[in-house]
Design a binder for these strands. Structure first.
Length: 446
RNA sequence: GGCGGCAUGGCCAAGUGGUAAGGCAGGGGUCUGCAACACCCUUAUCCCCAGUUCGAAUCUGGGUGCCGCCUCCA
């Protein structure tokens, strides 16, 4: 398949270094708050990529970290008077709840920063030994001028960056663009002992250390949101490659932002939706379908109205599954094969889930027409991680009794009464009664 | 100031040289006791200007508008 590689600024054929094994590292969340729809997008996209690579026959090892020590965590912990670890564990659990609802398969490993302090210290030491990092008042900084390729990923030029650099309060740095590998502890902050004094790791170093620890010096795919390209990923590359002397990642894959009213979501603008609040209104698969309807590299301008529209689209998927047609293609229709082929062509082309979903709906139409072949559809939906369960519910006795009452009324041609019962079930139980050839179907109002 | 992205029907969104996927919403039908579901029909020349080409939404140049990164951030 082809993947857009940020490093080369173009799509490239994906070739893992030692097929069929594929190593994939995706930057995880800093666990100090609830996840929002932007996080959802990133992890849905990479889950999708992971599923698709597996489908292609690769043996994917997927690592996604938790940043469980940093300024925001320390601040929040102080604010709540709660131990850092208690705080982060709570949000890790919340994270998994959200991801489960979105149908995201678990990564193989979820390393935590605090469990890799030694690996980080080793890496920092080797950077100092090589003369690309230096100690300054208990901090250890990376000297960006020592790494020739600095800026290659983000397309930035050191001189330009310096010209536009904003004021940095850290006077210990030789160059404003140098970044901190190890941060001296301030009073009252959590710390670890180190050869450089008590302190804690800088943000960037953890991903390098954890990625190399679990996946080796060179990983096949490194992913994350577009906002991580600079400086986070740029810095990861610098420190990793200086440390190991080897390329850090072959393919850099970045997903676009979720925006609200065309502006990036941010806490300061207070224009974000948490996954949990959206899940109170829409199901996980609907959310996932919504996210995958836009190509992963494009900005996605989020709106509740848009989500509601996709909710309707999802109902279409449900109703074709509800119809209960044979899973196999039992007609002479060869369109299934060509649709399936188109689906894979779309997915092969830089994970074009938007185009793939177009084909999914073509297939829905086809299934409704020839009344078979649901199995093909379900297989493709599984690749996208979109689960479609039959919407038929276990009815309460009360509802079942009403349905029976309505059946009798209908039989007696008392349609007025039958309609009244249908309305009653809708308003009291939120259930939609549909008459089909096989009897009554009962499903939630969407 | 530097770098990058985007602009497709009422809304969302694919499509990177051969005469515009798909979803939602709307209109008209078929089916249905009525609905619902489903199916059929129906609604665009792709921000503007110039150019390259037999042919451009798709390439080039110039505009206009919007957004992002350069600072924590998926």
């Amino acid at each position: 398949m082809q993947l857009y590689n940020t490093l080369q600024r173009k799509k490239e054929v994906f070739v893992p270094q030692s097929a069929p094994d594929v190593s994939m590292y995706v930057c995880g969340v800093t666990v100090y708050d609830q996840c929002h729809i932007g996080h959802a997008r990133a992890y849905v996209v990479f889950d999708c990529l992971r599923r698709y690579l597996s489908h292609l026959g690769y043996n994917v090892t997927y690592v996604q970290n938790f940043t469980d020590i940093d300024d925001k965590i320390i601040n929040r912990s102080a604010q709540l008077g709660e131990d850092c670890q208690v705080l982060t564990e709570r949000y890790i659990q919340a994270y998994f709840e959200d991801m489960d609802a979105l149908g995201i398969q678990r990564a193989n490993i979820y390393p935590k920063a605090t469990q890799h302090i030694n690996e980080m210290l080793d890496l920092i030491q080797s950077l100092i030994d090589k003369g690309v990092a230096y100690e300054a008042q208990g901090d250890v900084c990376f000297d960006v001028t020592q790494y020739d390729s600095y800026g290659a990923l983000s397309g930035k030029i050191l001189e330009d960056l310096e010209a536009g650099a904003r004021v940095d309060l850290n006077q210990n740095k030789r160059n404003p663009l140098d970044f901190v590998l190890w941060k001296a502890a301030k009073p009252g902050e959590p710390f670890w002992d180190s050869p450089f004094g008590k302190g804690r790791p800088g943000w960037h170093i953890e991903c390098s250390a954890m990625a190399m620890c679990h996946l080796g010096h060179t990983i096949d795919i490194h992913g994350g949101g577009q906002d991580l390209v600079f400086p986070h990923h740029e810095n990861e590359i610098a420190q990793s490659e200086c440390g190991s002397g080897k390329p850090f990642a072959n393919y850099w894959v970045h997903n676009g932002f979720v925006t609200i009213k065309d502006e990036k979501m941010s806490k300061s603008k207070n224009n974000f939706y948490t996954i949990k609040e959206l899940l109170s209104q829409f199901s996980g698969p609907v959310l996932r379908l919504y996210l995958l309807q836009t190509h992963y590299r494009h900005p996605l301008n989020f709106s509740i109205e848009g989500l509601a529209a996709v909710n309707q689209a999802y109902a279409r998927l449900q109703s074709v599954v509800d119809a209960g047609y044979p899973l196999d293609v039992v007609s002479e229709n060869t369109s299934f094969e060509s649709l399936e082929a188109s689906f894979f062509t779309a997915m092969d082309d830089d994970l074009n889930t938007a185009a793939a979903l177009g084909i999914i709906f073509d297939m829905v139409k086809l299934i409704n027409k020839c009344q078979c072949g649901t199995g093909v559809l379900l297989r493709l939906l599984t690749l996208l991680g979109i689960s479609v369960r039959p919407s038929d519910l276990d009815q309460s006795d009360e509802v079942a009794a009403l349905i029976e009452e309505r059946r009798v009324a209908k039989k007696n041609k008392d349609f007025q009464k039958a309609d009244a019962i249908r309305d009653q079930i809708r308003s009291e139980f939120g259930l939609l009664i549909e008459d089909t050839a096989d009897g009554v179907r009962c499903k939630p109002v969407s």
